[in-house]
């Protein structure tokens, strides 16, 4: 296993674009801290975002996991190109001739995907911990580590998404087209959702229960938007006579759906590779 990771790391280590994008990705996550410095005046009152409770434990896990997940698009580029470049440079063929089996090839890529997701999660954990300890109103151990499932959800979400990217890289063989395909897929899922929600199953929740099984939607479902959970947003809504009734939790079946998709994508990548003549 270490040998496979070592091989893949060797390939990425010398690629300047992969390095630049990965570093940008991690820098971007640390920029969450910048939100703390946002200040503005609203009706004569000094308003500081950091004081509005977004960095309170345990809410910070939810908030940071949601915001940091956007940056995954950067790593998606790295992952898609690390797959498709093997095709365009024809190095996949050379790797196989040199004695790597197709199984080992997929395994080395998937291990890298796991490593990326794991490092991102650890990184996010550290950033959130530091931000939380400096801004949170509550710092008791019990509170700090409650709602911790959002960090695990973040890991699973990245894992699933990167596995999808990996599959697209193998499937499409060209990085630009694979990323385009990713976007098209996202559009398709949304159109399908809109069609079901407002046409086919109008006025029911059937659309929601179907769409949660779609790959991108299931990943998005893991961590729902945290904004309407904030106190000041809720009180603002209350004044307007609105209230948010939403399930913000992370559920076991949502994990399961994403993990099933992850294994489908890895398995399909392997199957494609096995069937194709190079």
């Amino acid at each position: 296993m270490l040998r496979l990771l070592n091989i893949e790391f060797h390939k990425l280590k010398y690629s300047r674009s992969a390095k630049v994008i990965s570093i940008t990705y991690f820098v971007l996550i640390t920029f969450i801290a910048l939100i703390a410095s946002i200040e503005f005046k609203f009706g004569g009152i000094n308003f500081r975002i950091a004081d509005q409770g977004i960095f309170n434990f345990p809410y910070i896990w939810h908030f940071n996991a949601f915001i940091a997940a956007w940056a995954k698009l950067f790593l998606a580029i790295v992952i898609v190109s690390m797959m498709s470049n093997e095709y365009s440079n024809r190095t996949l063929k050379q790797n196989l001739i040199d004695g790597l089996s197709k199984k080992e090839f997929v395994a080395s890529k998937f291990l890298t995907v796991i490593a990326f997701a794991l490092i991102s999660t650890l990184f996010l954990f550290c950033v959130s911990m530091i931000l939380g300890l400096s801004f949170s109103d509550y710092t008791e151990i019990g509170i700090i580590f409650s709602d911790f499932e959002y960090i695990i959800a973040y890991f699973v979400k990245l894992l699933g998404f990167f596995a999808f990217c990996m599959f697209l890289g193998v499937f499409v063989k060209r990085s630009a087209f694979a990323l385009g395909f990713l976007f098209i897929w996202w559009v398709i899922e949304n159109i399908l959702y809109a069609l079901m929600k407002f046409k086919v199953f109008k006025g029911t929740t059937i659309a929601d229960s179907i769409i949660q099984f779609f790959p991108l939607e299931s990943m998005g479902n893991l961590i729902k938007e945290p904004f309407t959970r904030l106190n000041f947003i809720q009180s603002a809504a209350n004044q307007l006579g609105e209230s948010f009734q939403k399930d913000y939790g992370v559920h076991w079946y949502q994990f399961l759906i994403v993990l099933v998709w992850t294994s489908i994508f890895i398995w399909l990548s392997y199957l494609l590779l096995k069937k194709r003549d190079l």
Partner: peptide, 11 residues
Amino acid sequence: IERPNFYPYMT
């Protein structure tokens, strides 16, 4: 086989 295949960005 046919054509040399290597990673262009590596030495």
